[in-house]
Nucleic acid binder design. Structure first.
Lengths: 262, 262
DNA sequence: AACAAGGTTCCGTACTATGGAACTACCGAA
DNA sequence: TTCGGTAGTTCCATAGTACGGAACCTTGTT
């Protein structure tokens, strides 16, 4: 059986590249032969081509890691820029849906979450521009969503009491995070700022790790206990579709290894 | 003229992929045709193959950005893990050369630099294990090297006075950074901790941005004014060879576009 | 020294990739 | 609405690239 695409060589090379990029540690030539099912000579030729183009790198022991092209993409922050641009339409739709301020947040060092994209509320009373703003993990909906699903770690030390409703007990927080995992979304009610209520849901990358969270924020007067479930539901749907755009739960990735060999 | 490598299709696809990965913004099909000099049909076929394998992504407007494989590599922190492993032999040699404690540092949020790899001093009096330790940019050699070459930004606000020799005036610091750029290396003499002297030089990624710095640290008794230039010179040499390993100043990257077309 | 494992190069053949042309889709203008 | 122009995909016969078995080289092991 042959693939009728007219790109056999490229498909094979791409699968080798993916095999290298997905592994955390360098991959050996032999492992690549096993994984692809290709002939030694073919594998050697393809890998040499990938190496020549800077897509893979060979260390002194002859093992392969992703090459300079990957490295400079990552250092440049390409993934985050990409996330913002891919997310934009999703944020817009969520904003349309709920009418409230919508934010995309990612974890930062030091137990903080930074808002990296925003859609403004349709109401006169709504959030200001929070892009670039960093808030603590433990008292923001974005932060709780990140921690609950493994996208961030709560730092040691004192948990700042931002308002009289801020949860500062680690035990209480742990219980709440369990609830977050069960529900699929996080809520903060006036824990960061009096009168501010938010819900958030996690965003997954294609390999299942959490890379950020999506939130809907508004005044306590609109996001009442009764209104929260609907907002949370929209938020979760949006987060899921953003995850899907990033390749999470993608049903089948191109050619399967078995189909590579003749 | 043809390349006698037996990998024409893979080379061409790799060049298309690189063109997409290098650009900060999405690239159009037409730009890719121009850049590669290939026929429309060939370009279309190759791009479809890359897309099918998750190496590029096509947005709604039909423009191309790096695909999920790049995104998840970057989010996973693959580049940093890679840096540590690529750097290890270079650090080891620098340690051998100078006998002092050698560190690799990268910029973190909040005006800090984190040491992510280390080789211990050969002497009994030397640095302890600093891996994971974060120190301020303005009073560490690593930090100054990073700021001077654009790899980090000095945060606003108060510059902490760690010792009586810490430079806390922004004007004085600016002057010193100019000197760092001219010399190619940074020095701190008892500015972070009494008795501790260090020199550092920047490490460049393949596209010329600064991703980290390499330092040599020791007690003031050994790293005297007279001994500093030699240590700094070794440090710069090591930093340059590490940069070279990362592809910086690589003379020619594989096949040139002109050679792609038949 | 002989062997084994890991990788590369060689070379004739088979079949994959090529690119011109035809085709489709979409857009803006008249 | 029709019309041209631009952007991109599919088709197909042909050329020539990529294939893989086997020979060969290199390095580490018994």
């Amino acid at each position: 059986m042959t693939s009728p695409t007219g790109t056999q060589a490229v498909d094979r090379a791409a699968q080798l590249l993916i095999e290298v990029a997905r592994h955390r540690d360098p991959v050996t030539f032999t492992e690549l032969i096993a994984a692809s099912g290709l002939a030694k000579s073919t594998t050697s030729r393809l890998l040499t081509a990938l190496e020549r183009n800077g897509l893979v790198r060979r260390d002194l022991a002859g093992r392969f890691s992703p090459g300079e092209v990957f490295v400079s993409y990552a250092w440049r922050g390409g993934a985050e820029a990409d996330l913002v641009s891919v997310a934009q339409p999703v944020l817009a739709e969520l904003g349309e849906d709920t009418g409230e301020t919508v934010n995309l947040g990612v974890a930062r060092d030091g137990g903080l979450v930074e808002q990296i994209a925003q859609v403004d509320s349709k109401y006169l009373i709504g959030g200001t521009n929070w892009v670039g703003l960093r808030v603590p993990l433990h008292c923001s909906a974005l932060g709780k969503a990140l921690i609950a699903f493994g996208g961030a770690e709560l730092p040691g030390g004192h948990l700042e009491q931002r308002t009289d409703r801020t949860v500062t007990s680690r035990a209480a927080l742990a219980d709440e995070l369990t609830a977050v995992r069960e529900r699929g979304y996080a809520v903060t009610v006036e824990e960061l700022e009096p009168g501010l209520v938010a819900v958030a849901a996690p965003v997954f990358a294609d390999d299942g790790i959490v890379i950020g969270a999506l939130s809907v924020s508004g005044p306590a007067s609109r996001l009442t206990t009764a209104a929260i479930p609907a907002a949370a539901s929209s938020c979760m749907t949006a987060a899921r579709s953003l995850s899907a755009l990033l390749g999470h739960d993608r049903p089948a990735r191109g050619v399967q290894p078995a189909a590579l060999a003749s």
